[in-house]
């Protein structure tokens, strides 16, 4: 029982971080019907940026987030303008797989050259501190990471629901043609939306670097998890991504705690398969139109 509860605590806290990464991924899909295979690489790039700011200037990774999100927002906009916009609308979904994979490899190469292939981790000095609550260990950095992810998701929610830009984004997701007819500049929304997705990757990257060691190749593991989360939650649904992220990390943490770490990755894929058999559109996905 103790191991089970400890597993749930770990899973929920970690789930928050994955939710942040996946929200960007699902947003990009929702807006442009682009499956962004570079999202994992962007998270790792965000982690490297936070690492560099910490090592060179002593900036705490949490405080570095405004800087790294701005940089990654610009990277995201640039990627959209340079690589995705030129694609023809009709085959954008299919081609975007190749193009974003190429972007992922490009980023990986850039990171290997800049920081070489050794694993890095951001060691702030407080990364091992933990509280004991009723006999359960709560790692401080995980709790901060979780709270930060919640705050970032809250901001994203406000942005999507309370601003003009957000309304334009939602309109584009739900019905791109009508949105265009009503005067939404879909190209601009797409560029900014991609930037926003990259910015969430940067925020999640700072936190990821605090929790786990990473190198330029870490994005392969990440992207497979992210895609699964996004599919489980329903493509294009930010809320679905959050719920799915928590399910993923909680189920794998519980299995790791109570059965064996060897089965933990597998468990999640079993859940994914079962859900897709019953609900092919994912937990919160819709069939006809966008889900945002």
């Amino acid at each position: 029982m103790h191991a089970l509860v400890q597993g749930v605590i770990l899973g929920v806290l970690t789930g928050g971080v994955y939710a942040l990464m996946a929200s960007g991924q699902t947003l990009i899909f929702g807006i442009m019907k682009v499956v962004n295979l570079a999202q994992g690489a962007m998270v790792i790039l965000g982690a490297y940026l936070a690492y560099q700011l910490f090592v060179s200037f002593g900036i705490d990774p949490f405080l570095a987030i405004p800087i790294t999100t701005l940089i990654m927002f610009a990277v995201g906009v640039a990627v959209q303008l340079l690589f995705l916009r030129p694609l023809r609308r009709e085959d954008r979904s299919e081609l975007s797989l190749l193009v974003t994979f190429a972007v992922a490899l490009l980023l990986e190469g850039f990171m290997s050259i800049t920081w070489n292939t050794s694993y890095r981790s951001i060691n702030t000095g407080y990364e091992n501190a933990s509280w004991t609550v009723f006999g359960y260990q709560i790692t401080q950095v995980r709790l901060w990471a979780f709270l930060l992810s919640l705050a970032a998701l809250g901001l994203l929610f406000l942005l999507l629901n309370r601003t003009r830009f957000g309304r334009a984004v939602r309109a584009t997701v739900q019905n791109p043609d009508s949105a265009r007819l009503l005067g939404v500049e879909s190209d601009r929304v797409a560029a900014l939306g991609f930037g926003l997705g990259a910015a969430t990757a940067a925020a999640a990257g700072s936190v990821y670097g605090l929790l786990y060691p990473f190198n330029s190749g870490s994005h392969y593991d990440l992207i497979s998890r992210l895609l699964s989360i996004v599919v489980l939650g329903g493509l294009g649904s930010v809320g679905g991504a959050v719920v799915a992220a928590v399910i993923v990390s909680t189920s794998s943490a519980i299995v790791a705690s109570t059965v064996s770490p060897s089965w933990s990755e597998m468990t999640f894929f079993v859940i994914l398969m079962l859900v897709l058999l019953v609900r092919p559109q994912g937990l919160f996905g819709t069939v006809g139109r966008g889900a945002l």
């Binding site: 191991a3 400890q6 770990l10 970690t14 943490a253 990755e265």
Partner: peptide, 20 residues
């Protein structure tokens, strides 16, 4: 005794069992 796969990221579950 626990053998863990190379993808293991979170060692908290293993560490918790060792501690127990």
């Amino acid at each position: 005794k626990q053998v863990y796969p190379a993808e293991t990221q979170d060692f908290s579950p293993i560490a918790a069992k060792i501690a127990a």
